[in-house]
Design a protein around this nucleic acid. Structure first.
Lengths: 128, 128
DNA sequence: CGGCATCCTAAGGGATACTG
DNA sequence: CAGTATCCCTTAGGATGCCG
């Protein structure tokens, strides 16, 4: 924030406030798969093998790790059904759903500005 | 999307549509520093050394790489002033500003649900 | 089916030294 | 001041094999 006298109240190190929040955000979502899983579960609960099939290219290991972390953060519930063969369902919690809502603007931005970025890249690359 | 008859029009592989957009998004922003730089520049233009000072822990190398990529994607402009010592200013483009706006809901979410996540984690960790 | 445990590599990114 | 170049190390994450 810039005051009328020209001084600024913005912290010299953004680490103080915003940076911490953003860091949290990145630590939680900025991996290769978390956002994809959240987005998928937004469409409804899924079992492990369904997620594995629907998320192109994910390994079993990474799906497990991703789901565990989402569960730990309270974004996803894990429900084990005592049947044979075993069946495990994953579902967004209300908190997870609220995250999904907060992500939508960003996904929308990516969609609408996809071309802008592509052309900006082309311009940059030819000039270089 | 789930139809009235219970069938779903949601693609089996989300790679088809949403996943691509999300992938784009992640490729662009899911690194350690890009979001931090964008957020900082949202407060106004900065020169290289200012960014370096304000972003706690970033190396000269990574700041350069991050800024180059943001410039390439058309999110940031780089202005070199022909003075000595050299002075280079970085500023958000309109596209960059629109991205910042799209990020705000997410940053807000992180702030409001910070405690929810922390307590969810504690619960998970003690039960494990 | 839904996982762990192990191994292994590719890439991200820090530290340092040099330059216009 | 604002980079570039080089080296090096840590980590994400893929492949594979085993188990309840």
């Amino acid at each position: 924030m810039v005051m009328e006298d020209g001084t600024s109240t913005f912290p010299r190190h953004i680490a103080d406030t915003k940076a911490c929040e953003i860091r949290d955000l990145l630590d939680r979502l900025a991996d290769k798969w978390s956002l994809l899983v959240v987005e998928l579960l937004g469409d409804g609960s899924r079992r492990f093998s369904e997620l594995k099939r629907e998320i192109d290219g994910i390994s079993q290991r990474m799906l497990t790790l991703t789901l565990r972390q989402l569960e730990r953060d309270g974004l996803v519930t894990r429900t084990v059904h005592a049947v044979v063969p075993p069946r495990v369902d994953y579902e967004l919690t209300p908190l997870g759903a609220s995250l999904l809502a907060a992500i939508e603007p960003l996904v929308g931005w990516a969609r609408t500005h996809r071309d802008d970025i592509a052309s900006a890249r082309d311009r940059y690359d030819v000039s270089a």
